[in-house]
């Protein structure tokens, strides 16, 4: 039991992509929270609500250009928040999108600065997300690509052939989340020992702390304490 709140998070299986609604009971951060102590108020929200056009800033330009270059790819799930553009990319098309992002003169994202994983156990069928942060030095722009895969089939094509600098980032994401990047030259553990079992930063992996005793009183590890969120 790593996420004390997991029981409160029930999923509604109506979505097709990462727009699934997540239902929460109790206290939450958006809108008026249930601070009555009654705990009977139920509220659902979308983790990644679509943004409608116009996206603003240079974001429309990037999305339009990608649509023009790759008309057959479904790039409709776009989230714009906090001056950041997130494009959800179907994993089968990831390599095409990455190659277009790198090679097209109007996009020209030279660097993939970071690949990291996020685990959403409540998004059924797309529990694991790989998040790519691209940087265009030419145009001084950034874009975030997000790719989802199911826990039961944790495969995503590797970006290393397009962006060699993601080699270690993908190894780390594999090490921590168990996402298998197909086509990676050497997908091995990088931070944990080679014989480690499990993927530590998944939500279903316990924090692994031990109770701490001080002058007779015992404090449980942080993941087993009472929580508010």
């Amino acid at each position: 039991m790593t996420e004390p709140n997991a029981a409160d998070l029930a999923e509604v299986s109506d979505g097709t992509s990462a727009e699934q609604r997540v239902t929460r009971k109790g206290m939450w951060g958006q809108g008026p929270g249930d601070t009555s102590g009654y705990g009977g108020i139920v509220r659902s929200f979308e983790r990644f609500p679509r943004t409608d056009r116009p996206y603003g800033s240079y974001f429309d330009e990037i999305v339009d250009r990608l649509h023009g270059l790759l008309p057959s790819v479904d790039l409709d799930h776009v989230v714009v928040a906090h001056d950041e553009l997130t494009i959800f990319v179907p994993k089968a098309d990831l390599l095409d999108v990455l190659t277009a992002c790198r090679d097209d003169a109007l996009l020209r994202f030279e660097v993939c600065v970071s690949v990291s994983g996020v685990h959403f156990p409540d998004l059924v069928g797309e529990e694991l997300h790989a998040v790519y942060h691209l940087l265009s030095i030419t145009h001084n722009r950034r874009v975030r690509l997000q790719v989802t895969c199911a826990d039961s089939d944790p495969h995503i094509p590797s970006s290393v052939p397009t962006y060699p600098m993601t080699d270690w980032h993908e190894r780390e994401t594999y090490d921590m989340f168990g996402i298998i990047f197909d086509g990676h030259p050497a997908l091995t553990r990088i931070l944990m020992p080679d014989d480690w079992e499990g993927f530590p930063q998944r939500k279903d992996y316990p924090l692994g702390g031990i109770p701490v005793e001080y002058k007779g009183a015992v404090v449980p590890p942080p993941d087993q304490r009472r929580s508010y969120s």
């Binding site: 939450w28 600065v113 996020v118 942060h133 270690w168 780390e172 508010y228």
Partner: peptide, 23 residues
């Protein structure tokens, strides 16, 4: 770089630091 994901609670849902040395 710092990538922070929140799910609306009082604690980060995920934090990832992109360290230049790692790269």
């Amino acid at each position: 770089g710092c990538h922070v994901v929140s799910d609306g609670g009082t604690r980060p849902y995920r934090v990832h630091m992109r360290d230049p040395g790692f790269n």
